[in-house]
Simulated assay, not measured.
Amino acid sequence: MTIPSPAEIQAIMRSGVPLAGEWEVEVLAAEGGVALLRLPAKPNLLRPGNTISGPALMGLADVAMWAALLSTTNGRDDSVTSTMTVNFLRPAGSGPVLAQARIVKRGKRMLFGEILIRPEGSDDLSVHITTTWAVIAPQRGR
Rank of each mutant, 00 (worst) to 15 (best):
V27M: 07
L69Q: 03
K105H: 09
R118Q: 12
S79R: 04
P43I: 09
L57M: 12
N74T: 10
T72P: 02
V86T: 15
E31S: 14
M58I: 06
A11V: 07
S94D: 09
K105Q: 10
V27G: 04
G59R: 01
M1K: 08
T51I: 12
L98F: 07
R14F: 01
S53C: 11
G59A: 11
E24S: 13
V17P: 02
I115L: 08
D123M: 11
G21Q: 04
R14M: 03
G33P: 03
P91T: 00
M110Y: 13
L39T: 02
S71Q: 09
S15D: 13
W133S: 15
S5T: 09
P48R: 07
V34K: 11
T73M: 10
V104E: 14
V34P: 01
V97M: 03
E26A: 11
I52C: 00
L57H: 10
Q10M: 08
L45K: 09
R106N: 12
A137T: 11
N50Q: 11
G75P: 08
K105V: 11
P4C: 07
K42W: 04
P4W: 09
R140W: 02
S5P: 04
A30I: 13
S82V: 12
N50P: 04
N87M: 03
V80Q: 10
S82N: 14
W23L: 13
T73L: 06
T131I: 10
R38K: 15
H128A: 14
P119W: 03
L28N: 01
L69V: 15
G16Y: 00
F88E: 06
G121A: 10
A137R: 15
A68E: 00
I129F: 00
T51N: 06
Q10P: 05
T131N: 07
D77G: 15
W133F: 15
V80N: 06
E8Q: 13
M110V: 12
S5V: 01
I103D: 03
G33L: 11
I12R: 02
K108V: 04
N74A: 15
P18A: 06
V63L: 07
A30E: 06
S5M: 11
Q139R: 14
P18M: 07
A134K: 14
S126Q: 06
G33E: 08
P138E: 06
T132H: 04
W23E: 04
A11P: 07
R140Q: 12
L60V: 11
G95P: 02
G16M: 11
A11G: 05
T2D: 10
A11K: 08
W23V: 11
T81E: 02
I129N: 05
R118I: 08
V25P: 04
F112S: 05
V104H: 10
S79M: 06
I115N: 00
A92W: 13
T132Y: 00
A64G: 08
A61W: 00
M1L: 07
I52W: 11
M1N: 08
Q10C: 13
P119S: 14
L28E: 11
F88I: 05
P55M: 07
P6F: 00
A7F: 01
P91Y: 08
D124V: 03
E31R: 13
F88D: 07
K105D: 04
H128L: 14
S82G: 15
M65D: 00
L116V: 01
T81C: 05
